[in-house]
Write a protein that binds this DNA or RNA. Structure first.
Lengths: 128, 128
DNA sequence: AGTGTAGTACGACGTTCGTCGAACTTCCTG
DNA sequence: CAGGAAGTTCGACGAACGTCGTACTACACT
């Protein structure tokens, strides 16, 4: 009668099984989904957490920021977790730069795939 | 060092504690958040589930539909759950009509509160 | 009155989520 | 080289989520 597949499982499937072909190369642990692999549900889920919304909003104001520059009220490991969710959902791109990771918003990719979505979310997040 | 408040707790707080003043009248169990009480994170969370996204998309194509008219691959109780999440997030309005509930998208309220957001999500959900 | 239809309420279940702390890796710098 | 700074990894824990089945309510139609 039903598929017996939970939301999380579906998201995990599209985020972990579809991802590899794009950037699971050799030693790079930072694999991002290709533009066409970005899933709407995964993006919305990634944005539905206040902490991550804050990160994205901060990144919109100033790009290429390091993880630690956000001063979030959580520990480093939790921070890592949130950045990974954002990266695997296709919202941000992380580039290794020495001992830090430079984060940037994937504005163009997102705007091609889901026109207007990121902008409206950012605008909504800003005024409050 | 941190607030120790999880995402769910925060959403629940804004969805259940802020809600009452709006429409927790006498015998009406269908309480909707007022327009100004609609929370971005709650909206995004509500939309991040494929089943609920499907409901919203279907409601966008044809308004004022009954719960059973969606033919979702889940049981009735699960269906009730999803409609409640959507209602409490402020995405839909449910009106009692005899033995059924008529569901309609709160397009105007959402567009005033988060301009362009619903439209871009609907557009993104549609083409695929 | 009796049956059916549409939906809700409640409790249970397994999974996912957000969080933490401790241990670890990597790079930079004195 | 020793120390620190920036992140990651891993396992744990409690809360929240999606789902189900059963029992229930409320209205409608013979």
């Amino acid at each position: 009668m039903n598929t017996h597949v939970t939301q999380g499982q579906a998201i995990a499937a599209t985020a972990r099984l579809v991802e590899p072909p794009s950037k699971l190369d050799e030693q790079d642990p930072l694999c991002h989904p290709a533009r066409d692999e970005i899933e709407l549900a995964a993006v919305l889920h990634a944005l539905s957490d206040p902490m991550r919304l804050r990160i994205v909003a901060g990144l919109a104001r100033e790009d290429k920021r390091t993880c630690g520059s956000f001063d979030l009220p959580v520990t480093k490991s939790t921070c890592t977790h949130h950045f990974r969710v954002l990266r695997e959902a296709g919202l941000i791109r992380q580039r290794l730069e020495g001992t830090t990771r430079l984060n940037s918003l994937r504005r163009e990719d997102l705007d091609v795939r889901f026109p207007g979505l990121l902008e409206s979310v950012l605008q909504a997040a800003e005024r409050r």
